[in-house]
Design a protein around this nucleic acid. Structure first.
Length: 112
DNA sequence: TGGCTGACTTTCG
DNA sequence: ACGAAAGCCAGCC
């Protein structure tokens, strides 16, 4: 029997998939929501595997500054910005404008 | 088994 | 104010 042990990755996928279009979140926010705030790096790492899945919009996940840190891991470094702009998110110099307004906190939007 | 890595975050200098 | 280093946890070799 396998105990479907919720892997960190799957949990991250769930949260990322719940991100509304036109909104962005940070690795630390997800890590904090999962309870592993210390391993915010892992969240990004989870995205590394997640970006392979179409169900996981990794381009909506940015760092604490709203900077497109993971754009370098995309097919093209500009793909991430294009996707964000396509969803209504204004990106300037690889950074999200009004990041505070488009910021989406999982633990805040979800039943809290 | 043990050790390294990693798309971050925070704090000290 | 800017720069560098440490801390954190979980997966992968």
């Amino acid at each position: 029997m396998k105990k479907d042990k919720p892997s960190f990755f799957e949990d991250v996928y769930e949260v990322v998939k719940l991100i509304p279009q036109g909104r962005v979140t940070s690795y630390g926010a997800i890590a904090n929501y999962l309870g592993t705030k210390g391993s915010a790096r892992m969240v990004g790492w989870a995205m590394n595997a997640a970006h392979g899945l179409s169900d996981v919009p990794a381009h909506r996940v940015l760092n604490r500054q709203g900077l497109l840190t993971g754009k370098n891991h995309f097919s093209t470094p500009t793909l991430m910005q294009e996707l964000l702009e396509a969803e209504g998110v204004v990106v300037e110099n690889d950074q999200v404008v009004d990041f505070d307004r488009v910021f989406w906190d999982p633990g805040r939007e979800l039943t809290f």
